[in-house]
Computed example of a mutant assay.
Amino acid sequence: MQLMMIVVVLAATVAVAVTKFITASNASKEAFKTVNLLKTLTVNTLIYGERGTGKKTLAKYIVPNASVIDASSFEELLTAIESSNEIIITNIDSSPNIQRVFQAIKNKKIRVIATCASTNIGEMYDDIFSVKLDLPPLSKRMEDVEALIDIYLEEIKEIVRDDVKFNKSNFIPDVSDNSISLKKQIFSYSFLENITVNELMHLIENYLEDKIGTNNDYRNNLYLYEVPLIRAGLKKFKSQLQLADKLGLNRNTLRKKISENSEYGL
């Protein structure tokens, strides 16, 4: 007899970083208890949510020895189902023939942990998955985001050096793409916070190498120096008048430069 459908909707759940579950919030701690319960049950589970919320890592935690196959690799997936006792299927909603996949699962009676991005799934999923887990975006788990930041910073220190500077007071986490955007932002932010003069010049040199070759290159690329200088000055001095004085420029000259570079947010 098929198990009654269990829908577990988590207000906030486990944030995942590489191989760790983050349980900084009370809701995540409760969710982790549910996940540990699933490790002891031989039921099929569907984990859905936006990308970067930790669906695949959560699935691997439940069945650590299972093969991981993306549903878009149709023939590979069918072969894996026939030769395995348990399997992780990622992006199952992207399968080119979901009916055949489900039939193969039923025939083999294999245990499946699957992930998908959409919550708008058909009733056919109910016949396969007894448990559903909804992973909310990181924007609803800001306590977990703080813990993730610390984990990513530790990664950076291992790759670069232990004395990497990172000013959290001016840092606004980008969780628009969940852990994907957050990790990218932290690595970029750390690089910019710790960049040396020579590294900065080398970066600009590489950028300009393929963009120069005309008689107006010097003038056309001055904005690369002027825009960040004016931005930094306005942020520091809060006044065009004071900035013009500090830069040794006529106020009208500064206004002209700001106007010429308005497309860059000045």
Rank of each mutant, 00 (worst) to 15 (best):
S176Y: 04
V164S: 05
V164E: 02
L182G: 04
I172T: 12
S179R: 10
I149H: 09
N170Q: 14
D150R: 15
I156G: 03
L148K: 06
S179Y: 11
I180D: 03
N178M: 01
I180N: 08
D177P: 11
F171V: 01
I180T: 09
F166A: 02
V160A: 05
A147T: 14
L148G: 06
I149Y: 09
D177C: 15
D150C: 10
I159H: 03
L153H: 00
L148Q: 08
I180H: 08
I156N: 02
E154C: 07
K168C: 09
D174A: 08
I172Y: 09
I172V: 14
D150F: 08
V160S: 05
S181W: 05
D162P: 01
F166N: 02
D174Q: 06
V175M: 01
E155L: 13
D150H: 12
E158H: 03
L148M: 13
F171H: 02
D163A: 06
A147F: 13
S181C: 05
K157Y: 02
I156H: 01
D163F: 04
I180Q: 07
D162N: 13
P173Q: 09
E155D: 13
S181N: 05
S176R: 15
D177E: 14
S176H: 07
P173Y: 09
I172W: 06
D162M: 08
I180M: 09
I172P: 02
S179V: 15
E155A: 10
D162Q: 12
K168R: 11
S179P: 12
E154T: 13
S169V: 09
Y152R: 10
A147Q: 14
I172K: 14
S179F: 11
N178I: 01
K157D: 04
D177G: 15
L148C: 12
D162F: 05
R161V: 08
K183I: 07
S176W: 03
N178L: 01
I172M: 15
K168M: 13
S169M: 06
I149E: 10
Y152C: 07
F171N: 01
S179Q: 14
S181P: 08
E155H: 11
F171Y: 02
I180C: 04
E154L: 10
N170R: 12
Y152E: 12
S176C: 04
I151V: 12
S176Q: 13
K168I: 11
Y152L: 07
S169D: 08
K157G: 06
A147N: 11
S169Q: 07
I149S: 08
K165L: 12
V160M: 06
S169W: 00
N178H: 00
E155I: 10
D163W: 02
N178K: 00
E158S: 05
D162I: 07
D163M: 04
E155M: 15
